[in-house]
Amino acid sequence: MTSEDVLEVFREAGALLEGHFILSSGRRSPVFLQKALVFSRPDLSARLCAALAERVKAEFGQIDVVAGPAVGGIIPGYELARQLGCRAIFAERSDGKLSFRRGFSIEDGERVLVAEDIVTTGLSFRETVEALDALPGEVVGGSCIIDRSNGAADVGCKLVSLAQVDFPDYAADDLPPELEAIPAIKPGSRGLA
Rank of each mutant, 00 (worst) to 15 (best):
S94R: 15
D117V: 09
S45I: 07
G77V: 11
S189Y: 13
E110I: 12
E138K: 15
A50K: 13
V155E: 00
E54L: 12
A67R: 08
E130H: 13
A67L: 12
S25Q: 02
E130S: 14
G77R: 05
S94T: 14
L98E: 00
F21D: 01
L48Y: 10
T121Y: 13
L132I: 12
D147C: 07
V119I: 14
I182M: 06
F167H: 04
E178Y: 14
I185L: 13
E18Q: 11
E127A: 15
G26C: 09
E8Q: 13
L44R: 08
I106M: 00
V139Y: 08
A153S: 11
S3G: 15
R101P: 05
G73P: 04
E54H: 07
A181Y: 00
P136K: 05
S161R: 04
L37W: 06
A181M: 09
A13F: 02
E4N: 12
L192Y: 13
V56R: 02
V119Q: 02
G73K: 04
E12R: 15
S149Y: 08
A131H: 09
I145M: 01
K97G: 00
D169T: 12
K186E: 11
P183Y: 04
E127W: 02
L44I: 10
C49P: 06
A46N: 12
A13L: 03
T128N: 10
L44K: 10
G68E: 00
A171S: 10
L162A: 04
R41C: 09
V71F: 08
R55V: 10
E4Q: 14
V6M: 01
G188F: 12
V155G: 03
R101H: 09
D108K: 15
V38C: 01
L179V: 03
R102T: 07
K186A: 15
K186M: 09
T2V: 05
Q62C: 06
R55C: 10
E79C: 12
R41H: 05
R111C: 12
T120C: 08
G61S: 03
R27I: 03
S124R: 01
S143Y: 07
G103Q: 00
P30S: 05
L175I: 06
D5W: 08
A152Q: 13
L132Y: 09
A36H: 05
R11L: 03
L16V: 06
D117A: 14
A70L: 09
T128V: 15
P136T: 03
L179T: 01
K35I: 02
R148A: 05
F21Y: 14
D133E: 13
E178Q: 13
S161C: 11
R102Y: 05
S24C: 05
R11S: 04
